[in-house]
């Protein structure tokens, strides 16, 4: 009896390797909203960073898009268990926006039009980990997905990637956001399945 082997071809870089625990793969882009979709035109859009000392820095749409624009291809993971792979975004890195802001803060509270908030450590917005994204898969970001611009922090569950982003407060002490006040995890690492407080 002969034994036929297919040979060693190395570790397969398939979808299974890229799905965090408890997630399933989808090719749709589900819409989850906690309120009505804000209508914000690019003309009236602004983005404001407020430091812990009260210093404010505001960018208009023209000022934002005059900064270096990056294209990134990332996997995204929603706490409601869907994941999408190889999503393509264009936007401005938070590194470019925060480089001139004087701050000793350790935490960030992100604000959106419509009142949504979410919190995360400031270091998770830096070093090429987060963007203000305004294009998705080659098109302007639609309002239902957070247009004209949303935060993109793909290494954390997607509720941290606030739609309709309007600004960030830099804080010395952590302050829970909209879902973090109601039992969701303060950090939200999908690879450690940090869905709820205590996970």
């Amino acid at each position: 009896m002969s034994i036929v082997t297919r040979g060693f071809r190395g570790r397969r870089e398939g979808a299974d390797d890229r799905l965090p625990p408890g997630q399933y793969l989808t090719h749709d882009f589900p819409v989850l909203s906690a309120g009505p979709t804000p209508v914000v035109s690019r003309d009236e859009w602004t983005f404001t960073v407020r430091s812990e000392g009260g210093e404010r820095r505001t960018w208009s749409w023209a000022e934002l898009t005059a900064l270096p624009v990056e294209e990134v291809t990332v996997d995204i993971h929603c706490v409601t268990r869907w994941s999408r792979l190889d999503t393509v975004w264009r936007g401005v890195s938070l590194d470019a926006l925060l480089e001139d802001v004087e701050s000793a803060a350790d935490f960030a509270l992100v604000h959106s039009h419509g009142g949504y908030t979410t919190n995360l450590p400031l270091e998770d917005l830096l070093d090429g980990q987060a963007w203000i994204a305004f294009e998705h898969d080659g098109d302007d970001l639609s309002p239902e997905h957070g247009g004209p611009a949303r935060l993109l922090v793909p290494h954390l569950y997607f509720w941290k990637s606030a739609k309709w982003v309007s600004g960030i407060d830099l804080l010395v002490q952590d302050e829970p956001g909209f879902w973090e006040q109601l039992g969701y995890h303060d950090y939200g690492d999908p690879w450690r399945e940090q869905r709820y407080q205590g996970d």
Partner: peptide, 15 residues
Amino acid sequence: SDVLLRLVRTPDATW
């Protein structure tokens, strides 16, 4: 359109 009520059910609690 202000939020009056939020309700979340986690595996071990209702918020």
